[in-house]
Design a protein around this nucleic acid. Sequence first.
DNA 1: GTGAAAGCGCTAACAT
DNA 2: ATGTTAGCGCTTTCAC
Lengths: 342, 342
Amino acid sequence: MPIPTIEDVANAAGVSKSTVSRVLNGEYTYIRDNTRIKVQKAIADLGFRPNSVARSLTSKRTQTIGVLVSDVSNPFYSDVVHGVEDIAIDQSYNVFLGNINYDQQRGMALIRSLIDRRVDGILIMSSTTSDEWLDELDRNNIPVVVLDWDIPITKGTISAISVDFEIGIHQAVEHLLSLGHHKFAHVSGPQRLQTSRDRMNAFLGSLAKHGIPAEEVTVIESNFRIDGGREAGIQIMEMANRPTAVFAGNDLLAHGILSAAHMQGLSVPGDLSVIGLDDIWLAAETDPPLTTVALPRYEIGALAVRTMLELLNRPKAEESEPIRSTVKTNLIIRKSTAPPKM
Amino acid sequence: MPIPTIEDVANAAGVSKSTVSRVLNGEYTYIRDNTRIKVQKAIADLGFRPNSVARSLTSKRTQTIGVLVSDVSNPFYSDVVHGVEDIAIDQSYNVFLGNINYDQQRGMALIRSLIDRRVDGILIMSSTTSDEWLDELDRNNIPVVVLDWDIPITKGTISAISVDFEIGIHQAVEHLLSLGHHKFAHVSGPQRLQTSRDRMNAFLGSLAKHGIPAEEVTVIESNFRIDGGREAGIQIMEMANRPTAVFAGNDLLAHGILSAAHMQGLSVPGDLSVIGLDDIWLAAETDPPLTTVALPRYEIGALAVRTMLELLNRPKAEESEPIRSTVKTNLIIRKSTAPPKM
DNA sequence: GTGAAAGCGCTAACAT
DNA sequence: ATGTTAGCGCTTTCAC
């Protein structure tokens, strides 16, 4: 037997399609209990489920949002996507996933195909954005939320989620200070990345507020990878008057530093305190488990969807006023930090 | 100005909608070059793009596939999803992503909503499947490809991708043997998981083929995590007549063993050779970098889509004959294996 | 080769 | 409170 349509339900219940449609959509102008029940029974009997495609064609809404990420294989983005999907489903939206794969053209193609599919909105959770993308989206009147990474937002109507690194890094500094440290190092990611500079500046800025000038802090530029952390760690440990605490730009660097310390026969946190940033799963598994500034990846995705839903649900009047919000970072204290040896 | 429709194009080109539709779809019954060009010009002038929703309503195809995974945050699945998305886009399909979150009910809800959206097919890339899901899919005539994990497939018409662990593990055994090892250990994941048993059996089976009976192999059951590997590693290194080579059920366990060796002052691969399984990114970053049996996660996703497309494109005649295929594992030799000390 | 007309399954005025 | 009538933007016979 063919899949039942709204018409079949109407016939079975002895009412019109409109009436069925109304009970389907929980219409305000209320239906007599009696007929509502008839209709519901017919729906149940036939196992009727409305065809979303047809529904979208008339209603102009697809209950669908597109999520563009640089690359789902990157654990950062996969956590973001997880947050997106959870909240979306919860609000009965479905999500189209697109990997930009760090390719501007592919991003454009993806955006076009999502527009053709009439997604209600698009989330661009990527390390880079392109003005062309935003133009295309704007031209088609698609609401968009971007991850405010190192993105120069030139358009006025773009909503964004941004990350407050300062708050968590500030906690890290206070933690270290309260432990009694006063000689610090920072191992940063590539300085050409805005996020590397943000993390470094937050660290140096916070120390400065506590009377420790940037010049007194050893800064080593590295590559955000374990091997880079290992090298930087060795450098630090070979210093004449070496720092007692080091803040790494991410957890991989921190892990590399831990590994370097093992190699050099230094103990963490006994001889050296180490703090990372991200709170990737590995952070809890290292030896010792890493004290780190957690970056709320899942939350970023969740908030992005919530922002989108707000955008989608608000009255025309307030349209075009972008929503901007911020997620906080916070320090997670594990075992890689302790008071310095005297 | 409103978004142009096929009718606008028809008017602009002075032809009928049917004709426009034909050039849009590259119809066989060919159009006069002249009119085709007129139409194409009108399309370009208006910047017309066909509305996929409308198109799907009539054509009964959405050019969309749904991918259900246990959890995208799990690096295994995010790689699979990456493979899925790449191939899908390449074939101009879009993909709906759904996280089952290890929740049978949620899976059912997802499947229902994907059916309502008339996806052309569904990929279930999850550690578990439910007969109810498959029933629902079957009832709605939706083609499905499952990841043949530890899934008891009771239905006859399900296509599946499976993983050949034996081939890669066999290579690992031969590698170890050729290096001169003859005393082995295996650290396995939880034995209640089919995949743990598969990996162990492949290892023991391969050794047996080479004349080394299972009884001579030390097997420790653990938990697929770094800490589990650390504990198991310590156990192994404290053994009186300790093995010279250990095969770990996954890379995390192997990493833990490496870490245990460091702690015990043993050198890898000097004192102990270690082989992992998975080839997660961490495997290349450990110290030493890990020799491991690579599990082709991306390939699994890619193959799943290809299988689906084959299912979707074949003539009705051959319908209901499931396609089953296999991806191979293979050994990647890095620095954690070497000849045993005499 | 091309056009006219019907219809996909639903929603949304507009009546009643 | 419920039914009637138009579409939504395409594809697809069936004519010519």
